[in-house]
Design a protein around this nucleic acid. Structure first.
Lengths: 244, 244
DNA sequence: CCGAATGATTTGTGATCACGTACCGAAGGA
DNA sequence: TCCTTCGGTACGTGATCACAAATCATTCGG
């Protein structure tokens, strides 16, 4: 039997056989996206078509197209010679991502506000409670999955496919890097503004929601920037753009 | 010999054999991107793998991956049954795109300001002169290509791969639609704020550049919205977001 | 003259293969 | 001991094929 786990411990076993009928490529794409956003595939790690195909128990064909799609949103990188890799993070790129997030995500949250009813608020509170619990245990992967859940529960409610795709593209770019940093500094020092966001949603206050999301992004990214400053000097560059 | 032009007059003949050695898929992707941004492929038009491959004189293989990449940035749409098509524009989606453009593009322009020297300013002026000329002739495709040139000359100078990819993704989404509208209402009534932008760049004034780009987007999109309002009632929804 | 059924055609999908190139190891020489 | 050289291996790429599903046109029944 295949499933050889060539890619070291990078787990992608048979989680593609779980769901509905959306084609092999769709399931491969989902598996890779989830692995990237939760940072299970580390930056710099080389990724091969045949390797992934073997891990997933398919032919290289669906993997090729999935990879191509992810490369199109800069979630993966294909070098000049065609080699596939998870893009490395640079100080400059990190600043750009922070800037883009600060622009897009608060706006998407405000856009979503009318659609965020009691059910969504309850869900957000439940997720946030789980986040608090996971912070204590230091389980990085669970935290990243839950944090993604929290933010995208809001953004998805906006119903804006345009914003959703833009934001998801950005998350895919910093996900692997974020995981690497958390793995180094731990999750104990993490603070978020999720509760302020939930309060703003409950109060139907767009301005406060905008500010809560903006602060959540700024603080989380600043923490990473500081932690990175020790060995990369990235903290200095990490500032919010002009008016934001 | 192939090159059968099955896709009606949608021109994609042998413009892929023009340039350097970047693989067949790269050239196919470029050809499709250019065709989409200048609106040569109309919304709703069905696109087939074998059809495009025949037009371009290749096997369906490179087309498959190119299509997959473009679909990943919402430039193409794959229906539930797998059919490929240029996405249709909706009133809501149009408003979302306008909002995203108004957020991202002025910021990218400000980001690019330090890198915009005399050479870039001269290039911008030259392109803008050509635009003025093309407006008189009513040549829609030339106008769209030049307008794209003008904006992306600025954004590219920012050196931000993150912003560039986000903005290009949005342009790919409204390109085909924009062409359709211009083809209906003509380009005579078009006004832009390119000259103000050039002046702001020359004056090294970030705030004025930000405002010029914002107005250029808002006016251009509003014109489309109004023109669309006659048969789709899209103009009412087209408003700038809160603080922008 | 119109609408439903059926058969041929076309579609995307996944698998497999051949090819040229880049990478990575060990062996040889300075 | 270090560097170069030279094979073998693994890589992405493009092409081709088989297959199932969907589409479309024709034809038959009303």
């Amino acid at each position: 039997m295949p499933t050889v786990q060539r890619h070291v411990e990078t787990l992608d076993p048979a989680e593609l056989s779980g769901e509905g009928r959306r084609g092999l490529r769709g399931r491969v794409t989902d598996a890779l996206r989830a692995a990237l956003i939760t940072g299970r595939i580390q930056p710099g790690r080389s990724v091969t078509l045949r390797g992934l195909a073997e891990e997933l128990g398919t032919s290289p064909m669906p993997v090729r197209e999935a990879i191509r799609g992810l490369a199109a949103e800069n979630a993966l990188e294909i070098s000049a010679k065609g080699r596939i890799a998870v893009p490395k993070m640079s100080e400059r790129k990190f600043a750009e991502i922070l800037r883009a997030r600060a622009l897009l995500e608060p706006e998407a949250a405000v856009l979503a506000l009318p659609s965020l009813g009691r059910a969504e608020i309850r869900r957000l509170q439940a997720v946030d409670d789980q986040i608090d619990a996971s912070l204590g245990t230091g389980d990085v992967e669970t935290y990243m999955r839950l944090n993604h859940d929290f933010h995208f529960t809001i953004y998805t409610a906006s119903g804006s496919a345009v914003f959703l795709q833009l934001i998801e593209s950005v998350w895919l770019q910093f996900g692997p890097f974020m995981r690497m940093v958390y793995g180094r500094v731990g999750t104990a020092a993490l603070v978020d503004h999720h509760k302020q966001a939930i309060e703003a949603i409950a109060a139907r206050d767009p301005a406060r929601l905008h500010e809560a999301i903006r602060l959540d992004i700024a603080d989380g990214m600043a923490l990473i920037g500081e932690a990175l400053g020790s060995d990369a000097g990235a903290a200095s560059e990490v500032r919010m753009p002009r008016g934001v």
